[in-house]
Amino acid sequence: MHSYAIWVPIVLALLAYVGIVFNLGPGLWIQEALVMGLITGWMVGDVKLGLTIGATLTLMSLGMWTYGGATIPDFMTGAILGTAIGALGGGETAGLAVAIPASILMTQLDVLGRAVTTIFIHAADKYAERGDLRGITWMHLLGQLPWGLTRAIPVFLAVWLGAGPIQSVIHSMPQWFMNGMHVTGLMLPALGFALLLNQLPIRKHWPFLVIGFILFAYLKVSILGIALAALAASFLYIRLKGSEADA
């Protein structure tokens, strides 16, 4: 199989549109790579692939958040494209080879979408001046178009037109490249962890980091066990700190 029936790119494009707009409001997390990976994987008949790609992208994204409207890599589009293309035969390696560059390239379109929407608030200024409430309503509701289309159109084109060509490129990839992509997938969670650690006060609380590591790496405690220990440790810390202040 080298390409999809026409309805697949159409539905995936709609999925991307709905994903980004519903993430803007009410703030549903359907744009999350894990959710999009599952839905796309289910659609193209490879749920496991979708979950793997979604999980790898999610781990890359750990410390990332659109602070104050900052642009971050578009892992939603990455997950959809990576899963859809990977399911054509290349599997996880091919999927990641598509998903990671796609996530990064899509930042350009995120910037475009955020910029184009400015047109709508300028039009709203004019309607406000005239006291035209209906005009304001339309400008606000249509403001979703640049957001949704900057995701939907690339997804549609890449899956519809690109599946075949991308697939043949992937098939001609040498073994060293496939190996490299595989190790890349194993290493990338480090990016997410590093981002997260940069935001947490590690200098102050590093002993807790070490304890968590020892619990898993040396003592083989499960993650749930570590979470319970962490809960107890954090409350103890606050309690002891409080009594110190009282004394």
Binding site: L59, V183, L186, M187, P189, A190, F193, L196, L197, L200, P201, I202, H205, W206, F208, L209, V210, I211, G212, F213, I214, L215, F216, A217, V221, I223, I226, A227, A229, A230, L231, A233, S234, F235, Y237, I238
Partner: peptide, 23 residues
Amino acid sequence: TEIATIFGVMVVGGFVPSIMTNL
């Protein structure tokens, strides 16, 4: 915030070796 931070730091300490165990 402080409780959540300490909780987070400790869990991350366990997550690093568990998630990247295949490296």
